[in-house]
Design a binder for these strands. Structure first.
Lengths: 336, 336
DNA sequence: ATAATGTGAGCAAACGGTTGCGCAGTTTAA
DNA sequence: TTAAACTGCGCAACCGTTTGCTCACATTAT
């Protein structure tokens, strides 16, 4: 139904090739013809068919973004949308569209990846919330398909990735607690399946060790990135008779849950127990008490990821790049 | 590079047509041939090229989602991601992928719409955060392209839409204030360009009138959907010497800002002034005081939108459907 | 005047599928 | 026994663009 390049060609009394070349700004088309054709395109409301173009070009202007986490939950964590808009911002400037898909198992992820990569529908992929051992990444690398993962994967040297220096995030947070006189700092992690958790834990341990404070395993617990378990994890810790003077949560939502639990039990935050989170969600400052957190700069994470992807897509030889996005400790009342 | 239908055909000693029909489960292919071909497809790791398929079919398995609001900000409001995941959830089940794009002006929206619709890249569109007068919608309807808008547009009878009953949302909220003895209830709206605001305002007025309370224009102010202006709007109201005993904000983020302002000025919430918002963002319950809000069921909004879209796409004749998603008042301490 | 070069545009194949039509070979009905 | 119907598959056109090659004509160099 819509007008095609052939319709324009007929109307202009030229061949389809000429119209195509006109659109592509090919210098071998005379100025007269060019103008005549452009005029007709406006008049007839011509819009190029992206599908046909992609088929001929064997490439599209679409990148795929794959979010790990159930379709119902994944987007709702403030962290993802922010990354997403970082990606979208870059994509918009370069004329790329983004195709998103959220999966909730490694298997679904693999399926989505092969659909995106092998069906020719995207010409690059961003993997969000990478698992420690990412089989999709292996597959993509093997088929030489451009992609970048957000979050350092275990096999980091073989893939493009962008991430914060999460060891440092853990380290900085811990040091902040120590500098404020805390000595028994608990660590509430998310699922250890994800690299962020283990990296931050590493930083936590490092900071303790540097300050000659023994790492006590009973102060370290793991959960998932949902708020309720922040409450649950904290409760478990308290029920076991453990009384830290500080709590580092791997996510603000975990911290919120933890604080609620502490307050219910009659502890004062930060007087009795200091609590900090990570991700600096917008409502940290409205919380009571305002929550100390780490701004991981999710937007930049997304933007950088897109940059890397484009570089990888357009460069002749697949190179291995990576970017470390700086994170920033934001001290609020929950820890001082 | 990747293996095509022709490669399979050669390997199986049949014609490409036969392979194609095998994939399409055409009954005129014998069981033997079918099995042989499927086996080869697995072995050779064949994946259909979606682009080619789309070109031949003149249709894709992709729907476009257009978000109004800047690429940097739009996704960050908790409301959008939730709608998005509602859409994604439906899409996933039906094998559709979603292409998202965020725009920050009516003009960009129009551009995105025509790109999506005319380039053949999507076969349906969801418009989020519809303006009162939506020119994109007019254009889409005119070209008979399947789409649905989330949020009732002004020209509602001509388009498919899904929304809450926002008049009722405003009405319920206001009645809640009145039932708690409030008599001077201010209304903090978002930009009147969007239908939600005017609808809720209508409900607000209706409830007042029903209770024989005069509508006072000086109690009604408009802003945008960003938290800072919640503070700003409230401050403006107070600076003008207005002292309401209740504040209805059209969005939780507005309410947060308003409350912060009130507290700074020494007012107690809810004792002096009750405040409620809309959207029931996850952190309402952590706020101090926990915020009364309305759960607009954004996920269902998205899911319903997808349903309507699919119906519209697959049905022979374009019909005009719409869906009202129930909203639910959630009373918390900020108003009682 | 002739050859070499440049200019502007068309032909046709290709991208990877889908599908209407036709055609053998086999089965069923008359 | 012959016609009709069915079965299983191939041929070729088509979807809308892109692009290598060719070609006619005009320009410049020899």
């Amino acid at each position: 139904m819509p007008v095609t390049i052939n319709d324009i060609a007929k109307a202009a009394n030229v061949s389809p090739s000429t119209v195509s070349r006109t659109i592509a700004n090919n210098p071998r088309i005379s100025e007269k013809t060019r103008e005549r054709i452009f005029k007709l395109m406006k008049e007839m409301n011509y819009h190029p068919n992206m599908i046909a173009r992609s088929l001929a070009n064997k490439s599209t202007k679409i990148i795929g973004v794959i979010v790990t986490g159930s379709a119902e939950k994944a987007f709702q964590h403030p962290f993802f949308p922010e990354i997403l808009s970082g990606i979208a911002s870059g994509a918009y400037k370069s004329g790329y569209k983004i195709l998103i898909s959220s999966v909730n198992s490694a298997q679904e992820e693999k399926k989505a990846v092969s659909e995106y990569a092998m069906s020719g529908i995207t010409s690059g992929i961003v993997l969000l919330a990478s698992r420690v051992r990412n089989t999709s990444a292996d597959e993509l690398r093997q088929m030489d398909f451009p992609f970048v993962v957000v979050g350092r994967p275990e096999n980091e040297c073989d893939v493009n990735w962008v991430d914060n220096d999460n060891v440092r995030v853990g380290h900085d947070l811990t040091r902040h607690f120590l500098e404020n006189g805390r000595r028994e700092v608990a660590f509430l992690g998310a699922s250890p399946e994800f690299t962020v958790t283990s990296d931050r834990l590493e930083g936590y341990k490092k900071a303790l060790t540097e300050n000659d404070i023994p790492v006590r395993d009973e102060l370290i617990v793991n959960g998932k990135f949902v708020d309720d378990t922040g409450y649950g994890l904290m409760k478990e810790l308290l029920d076991r008779g453990i009384r830290p003077d500080g709590v580092i949560a791997c996510d603000d939502l975990l911290a919120f849950g933890a604080i609620r639990c502490l307050q219910e039990k009659g502890f004062r935050v930060p007087e009795d127990i200091a609590v900090a989170g990570v991700n600096n969600v917008p409502l940290d400052e409205y919380f009571d008490p305002p929550l100390t957190s780490v701004d991981v700069n999710a937007f930049s994470l997304g933007a950088k990821a897109f940059d890397l992807l484009i570089t990888n897509m357009t460069s002749e030889h697949r190179s291995i790049d990576r970017a470390i996005v700086p994170a920033r400790l934001i001290v609020r009342k929950s820890t001082v």
